[in-house]
Design a protein around this nucleic acid. Structure first.
Lengths: 198, 198
DNA sequence: GTCCTAGTATGACAGCTGTCATAGAATCCG
DNA sequence: CGGATTCTATGACAGCTGTCATACTAGGAC
């Protein structure tokens, strides 16, 4: 999660995502984003003529694509292929972050949803798209792991739901307990859905 | 969810919870809370000398107690006692709200967590307490439904996680699909944990 | 050289935020 | 009646927000 070589525009989107997932959308200022990205403040209105809403939407979209990409990498890196292992890898990314970086930051898509679902329609739509963008490759991965097609979408939604909720609880409690719990309880269920060998 | 007969202080806490769950903590102003509660603005500093943080914390605490109370009512009103039915009732409360009131508002505890976990330690603690306050009666209810003691806490956490995550997705997509999905997929798993008859 | 464009730099704007100081009403006690 | 307590009213404060207008610099095209 390091970003420094890219252009100022990309750095600002990346920084926006980072600040949003820490403080929420409303508490994240544009001047702050520029400073965090070490980008000139004058470039904000140049790259983002749509204002803060555009910047936030792009940050949310970036986060969705990032999550989607990771699914593929987790699937490829699985020791033994099983849905429970994939879910454990997704959860593990968060337990690792919380244990090494602290509980300061959560999911930027969740933050955008909570802060903008009723106040900025385009941002709400961006968050919806981000979740969909995350769900699709996850469902494909489940299919590859032997889950019958008609359930892959539902199970992917369940996995994302449980993960997002556990992230919330973990941050509130400053304890990864909720994350390890959902991984442990959901894993067997997911594996129980496998009917074919890939 | 109507509050009008109580005193101004309670009305302000209640209004704060409503506004927070709609717009998030940062976007909710104190003047707005007073206006929404039809309470005098001058009373804010009188009832909440701790400022906005105190008001937010009390709203979060109220929400946690409200959720905990509902678990008992759901359990009592269950047609046939099973964990899946309890979970369906919890989910149903949200599908009902979304379908009748729209997707404008989510969970206030989630909003407080997202907005304050890294910026207001006391609010983060209040959110953690709210989740714990919700988890306890839910775990007890599962025990009463025949789930062995050592798993009740874990399953309660899984239920709350999945519900909170599905609320997020539903708001982002403006579709209750995620909620019905988690209820359908998680129900059988929950029932499968029942070993004793109550 | 000039011209054009991409990107940057500032400063100002109105609007809102939470907080505080201070004064005022209302209500009950004795 | 006086007096105390509880609650309300109001105006001001510094600080921050997103946005805009405007002027500037760099770098290449020709």
């Amino acid at each position: 999660m390091a970003g420094s070589e890219r252009g100022p525009r990309e750095r600002m989107v990346f920084s926006a995502a980072q600040l949003i997932r820490r403080d929420g959308v409303a508490a994240t200022g544009m001047r702050e984003v520029a400073a965090h990205a070490r980008a000139p403040r004058g470039s904000l209105q140049y790259y983002f003529p749509g204002g803060k809403e555009q910047l936030v939407n792009e940050a949310v979209g970036w986060a969705g694509r990032y999550a989607a990409d990771r699914v593929g990498r987790f699937l490829a890196g699985l020791a033994e292929p099983a849905p429970s292992g994939l879910f454990a890898a997704m959860v593990g990314q968060w337990t690792d972050e919380f244990q090494t970086q602290g509980f300061g930051s959560g999911c930027p898509v969740a933050a955008a949803t909570v802060d903008c679902a009723d106040s900025a329609e385009s941002t709400r739509a961006a968050a919806g798209a981000a979740f969909a963008c995350w769900n699709a490759p996850l469902a494909r991965a489940l299919a590859e792991l032997g889950v019958p097609e008609q359930r892959t979408g539902s199970l992917a939604t369940l996995m994302i739901s449980a993960l997002e909720g556990a992230i919330l609880i973990a941050r509130a409690e400053r304890d990864i307990r909720a994350l390890t719990t959902v991984a442990r309880e959901l894993g067997p269920l997911l594996d129980g859905c496998v009917t074919e060998r890939a």
